[in-house]
Computed example of a mutant assay.
Amino acid sequence: MFDIKSFFKREVEKKLINVDDYIFMPERVEMEIEGGLLNCVLNSDGRVDIFYSKDGVTEVGSASRKHPFTAFEKELYHGIYDDVINDLIKEVDKIIDSTSKYFRRSQSLPFTASITSQPSDTNKF
């Protein structure tokens, strides 16, 4: 899914701080938070990708690196990306709490036909 809000936010942040002038050492920080798993990834181009998974539902957000001379973990501890993390947690909780009017847990979904591994003879030339 294409997130237009984070795209525009990222472009504005690039204008404020030109992270294209820096090459970052990729880093990953994982932690459990509010019953789910949070992964924060610093990419070498200065983009921070944040993944939040809970009960099989995953939401992804992105932000630009705010302070290129500060350690990535220190930025996380100071709450620089808390707004993005809060949005992800809210979205995942909203999805988990919602229900479909078409599909119910008490209904079993029909099995689909299996795909054979051998090609049929009709495709020969």
Rank of each mutant, 00 (worst) to 15 (best):
T70E: 08
R65P: 00
D97W: 00
G61R: 11
L88K: 04
S100T: 11
T99M: 03
H67P: 01
K9N: 09
T70W: 01
L76P: 00
V12T: 06
T99C: 02
I95C: 07
S117A: 13
E32P: 00
M1F: 05
S64M: 14
C40N: 05
V48G: 06
N123M: 06
A71H: 10
K5Q: 03
G79M: 08
D3I: 05
F51D: 14
I33V: 11
R104V: 00
S44G: 00
N86H: 10
I80T: 14
E75I: 03
D82G: 03
Q107A: 06
A113I: 05
E91T: 05
D45A: 09
S114V: 04
T99L: 01
K14H: 09
K5I: 09
P26R: 14
A71K: 14
E59S: 07
K90Q: 09
V92L: 08
V60A: 06
T112Y: 05
E30R: 11
I4Y: 02
G56Y: 01
R104Y: 14
M25W: 01
S62G: 07
S106G: 03
D55F: 09
F24M: 09
H67T: 00
S100Y: 03
F111K: 15
A113L: 11
L16P: 03
L16E: 10
V57D: 04
R28C: 11
D21I: 07
E13C: 05
G46E: 11
E13Q: 15
P26M: 07
N39A: 05
E27T: 03
S108E: 12
S44D: 14
E91R: 15
G35S: 06
Y77C: 04
V41C: 03
D82S: 10
F111V: 10
Y102S: 14
D21F: 06
F24Y: 14
P26H: 12
D21E: 15
G79L: 00
E73F: 02
T122Y: 12
S117K: 15
V12K: 15
R10L: 10
L109P: 02
S100I: 00
A113G: 06
P68A: 09
I89A: 07
